[in-house]
Design a binder for these strands. Sequence first.
DNA 1: AATGAATGAGAGTTCATTCAT
DNA 2: TATGAATGAACTCTCATTCAT
Lengths: 199, 199, 199, 199
Amino acid sequence: MVAPSDKFARQRDRAVRAAAAEFARHGYHGASTAGIASRLGIKQGSLYYYLSSKEEALERVCLLALEDYVARMEAIVQSQQPFAAKLQATISAHLLRYREQDEAMKVYNDERLYLPVNRRADLKRLGSRYRKMLEQMFRDAMASGEVRELDPHFAAQAVIGIGNAMGELIVRDPKLDVVTLAQKCNDLLFNGLAEQPTD
Amino acid sequence: MVAPSDKFARQRDRAVRAAAAEFARHGYHGASTAGIASRLGIKQGSLYYYLSSKEEALERVCLLALEDYVARMEAIVQSQQPFAAKLQATISAHLLRYREQDEAMKVYNDERLYLPVNRRADLKRLGSRYRKMLEQMFRDAMASGEVRELDPHFAAQAVIGIGNAMGELIVRDPKLDVVTLAQKCNDLLFNGLAEQPTD
Amino acid sequence: MVAPSDKFARQRDRAVRAAAAEFARHGYHGASTAGIASRLGIKQGSLYYYLSSKEEALERVCLLALEDYVARMEAIVQSQQPFAAKLQATISAHLLRYREQDEAMKVYNDERLYLPVNRRADLKRLGSRYRKMLEQMFRDAMASGEVRELDPHFAAQAVIGIGNAMGELIVRDPKLDVVTLAQKCNDLLFNGLAEQPTD
Amino acid sequence: MVAPSDKFARQRDRAVRAAAAEFARHGYHGASTAGIASRLGIKQGSLYYYLSSKEEALERVCLLALEDYVARMEAIVQSQQPFAAKLQATISAHLLRYREQDEAMKVYNDERLYLPVNRRADLKRLGSRYRKMLEQMFRDAMASGEVRELDPHFAAQAVIGIGNAMGELIVRDPKLDVVTLAQKCNDLLFNGLAEQPTD
DNA sequence: AATGAATGAGAGTTCATTCAT
DNA sequence: TATGAATGAACTCTCATTCAT
């Protein structure tokens, strides 16, 4: 049995996911509350029982995208593995996120800037925490000699860029295997394009 | 001295660039024709003397982004250089494009899908030509042994992804040197993150 | 007591009648949705809760004009009366229509051609059914010798023409008695202008 | 050789006829000055060299329709012919007008009421002169026993109504012979629908 | 918990009209 | 005589939001 407030929370969650789907397809400005409501099977006005504005919907969608994404990253960073394994775990987590929560991710990537600044505080905190962890991972790897000397900021950005590009592939082609793709990314990032000397 | 039709063409060009700026800042759906017009210093209705609809504006912005981008790529592919040089030229061209035409590029990347299919024909042709050239570059490099065996489709996507991620850095930080950044990308892509055996 | 859906239907009906009035006064293109809404005592935007476009409004107005008009004609044709009585009934019905639904009739007559073809299908079906019944009435009357030999198409058009001309008189002068006028039309059509020999 | 003012007058005449065509097709409010100009092969702005406003265009079109229409009627009335011949001449003239000047006629019939009252003075004078002549014709015919006792106002309206209905036939079917049609109208009006007793 | 009805602001677009050239 | 360019007001239509029920 579920407490009434839980039922409410569950329905609001459905609303946020419906919003994610609409925002992903039409963009924040192109999406309509009517579309969101119709995905939920309720009427436009009823939506406001669960969400107080379209803007709040966007904020919740973005938070949904980042939520345990960051938590997962935390676990990876603290784990005792060689850098190569950590990197692959990072990329896998990133790509998996596209499979599980592709719409929210897309919305976070493309639409978060339409949030007014005062609504972006939480997002920014989460986002920069993620970035910092990734950069720290690189710094540690350089210190231990696992990775050659590089600008960690630049390296982190490159990883994220490749990740997002692959994300588009994943969303477009639902049959693609995420883990294999992550391996390929990892291999490319780690070993580069050049022919390996001896193995 | 300028022919009258040139004057019109020049003003329409300005209109397209103004549209690019508005679309880049607010997204296609979030942007308003009033905003575009005000950038031109004319009234909203007057905009329609140069552009017959908001949609046409978006199409022209996207075409502007791709225009000589593809032409430049063609030159690179046909040039007689080792693969490493070609790759760096490709990335440089890509990043330069962000400096010169950053707004149009952003719009092309993020908003082109809001064009109705019948308006996307030209764009698609240009876009796939670019992709094919890039993939061909990889295939050639594998054949000559300059690059190890890889899925060319995957490799091309990775390059584009890194390029776009760097694009965001460039747009955000106007002091960044594009050529240096391109070298770093090239190095990363080519040699990977791993410590090099001998140098 | 009225079911909720009836309330909606009734309000939409009022909207259609308001549209009829506006279209009749200003013509389809000259009329504004603001004018229609203000007749209903609601704001312009609210009109779209009941009608999805100005075009739909025009279509509904035209259908309203023809609706039981055709049904009434059907009853007349099938009744067992001499032709003279049928003709008078036809004209009476036509003129009465102007009193009851004058605005919709005017709109049907003058504005229906501004509907795009795909919206005119139903109207055409009803209209040609009416015309055919009228022509058939003439053919029957010729066969029975009640009317002399004539082109039925021409005769039907003449009746409609006189009817519409009288319609304008009726609309202009609200005191005019419709039945008397119908009798006069009938007499004119039946006996002509010429002095009658002896009777 | 033509004086410059004549050239101007001739071009303005062409403009009025172009306006007639546009108004006839789209209605006054639905027509655009751009459409009129394009029929003349000039640009929208240039139209204002010949016509000071859309309204003036409508007025001129209506006057064009009535112009010698009334003059012709004057000739018919004053001619020494039996009533039957006069009536047929009237109808013929009316129908011919549709062939020669069909667009202007249609506009006069359907759109003249969109003129503001102060622009309608001339039209009203011409129109009522026509009506009075027609009614007088009926009164004379009654006095001479050529036509039985009737309300002349009603009779005149009926003639005009039939004339307009036939006008639509004429416009729709360009092969129709106007004179034959006029004879048929005359015969119908004069002798009625009823079977003639002896001839 | 949900709805029907309405709103008000704003959107894109059209168009008669003006005017310097 | 005609044009290119611009304007400003009007228009249809959309939509986030509110609220009594």
